[in-house]
């Protein structure tokens, strides 16, 4: 799943470690979500989106899901 996490992080000059600490996960998980290896759960997706002050669909691209 494509996400805007990397782009949003860069905008806010935020490292993966800092974001991970804020949303209660690990740096490796943030990396995996950013590269599309891992799909975040609804709770984690909400926490990430909430941290950036955006809605989930503004951070995560659900176009792949709609194809099914």
């Amino acid at each position: 799943m494509k996400t805007r996490i990397k782009e949003l992080r860069k905008e806010r000059k935020l490292s993966q470690e800092e974001l991970a600490l804020e949303v209660g996960t690990t740096r490796q998980t943030i990396t995996s979500i950013e590269v599309g290896k891992y799909t975040a759960s609804l709770v984690l997706a909400y926490k990430i989106a909430h941290y950036f002050g955006l809605a989930i669909e503004e951070v995560f691209d659900f176009s792949d899901v709609n194809e099914f």
Binding site: G24, T26, Q28, T29, Y38, A40, S41
Partner: peptide
Amino acid sequence: NKEHDERL
């Protein structure tokens, strides 16, 4: 966070 990380 490491112990409660959903991916881990």
